[in-house]
Simulated scan of single mutants.
Amino acid sequence: MTQKMTKPDDPDFIHGFPREIWEEVSDNPELTEEDFKLARPFREVFPELAAEIERSRGRPASENPKKQVTLRLDADVVARYKAGGKGWQSRMNADLRKALGL
Results as ranks from 00 to 15, higher is better:
residue 2 T to I: 10
residue 5 M to T: 12
residue 5 M to G: 14
residue 6 T to E: 08
residue 6 T to G: 00
residue 7 K to E: 14
residue 9 D to C: 09
residue 10 D to P: 00
residue 10 D to M: 04
residue 11 P to W: 00
residue 14 I to N: 01
residue 15 H to V: 07
residue 17 F to C: 10
residue 18 P to N: 09
residue 18 P to C: 04
residue 18 P to H: 06
residue 31 L to V: 03
residue 33 E to T: 11
residue 34 E to V: 05
residue 35 D to M: 07
residue 36 F to V: 11
residue 37 K to V: 08
residue 38 L to V: 06
residue 42 F to W: 00
residue 42 F to G: 00
residue 42 F to P: 04
residue 45 V to Y: 01
residue 46 F to W: 12
residue 47 P to A: 00
residue 52 E to H: 09
residue 52 E to W: 06
residue 53 I to D: 06
residue 54 E to P: 00
residue 56 S to Q: 14
residue 59 R to I: 11
residue 60 P to E: 10
residue 64 N to G: 07
residue 66 K to F: 12
residue 66 K to R: 15
residue 66 K to G: 10
residue 67 K to G: 04
residue 68 Q to T: 14
residue 69 V to K: 11
residue 71 L to S: 05
residue 72 R to V: 13
residue 74 D to N: 12
residue 76 D to M: 04
residue 76 D to E: 14
residue 77 V to G: 01
residue 78 V to K: 05
residue 79 A to G: 13
residue 79 A to L: 02
residue 79 A to P: 02
residue 80 R to S: 09
residue 80 R to E: 08
residue 81 Y to A: 02
residue 82 K to T: 05
residue 83 A to R: 04
residue 86 K to Q: 10
residue 87 G to M: 06
residue 89 Q to F: 11
residue 91 R to I: 00
residue 91 R to T: 08
residue 93 N to G: 15
residue 93 N to F: 13
residue 95 D to M: 06
residue 95 D to S: 09
residue 95 D to W: 05
residue 98 K to D: 04
residue 99 A to V: 04
residue 101 G to C: 07
residue 102 L to K: 11
residue 102 L to H: 09
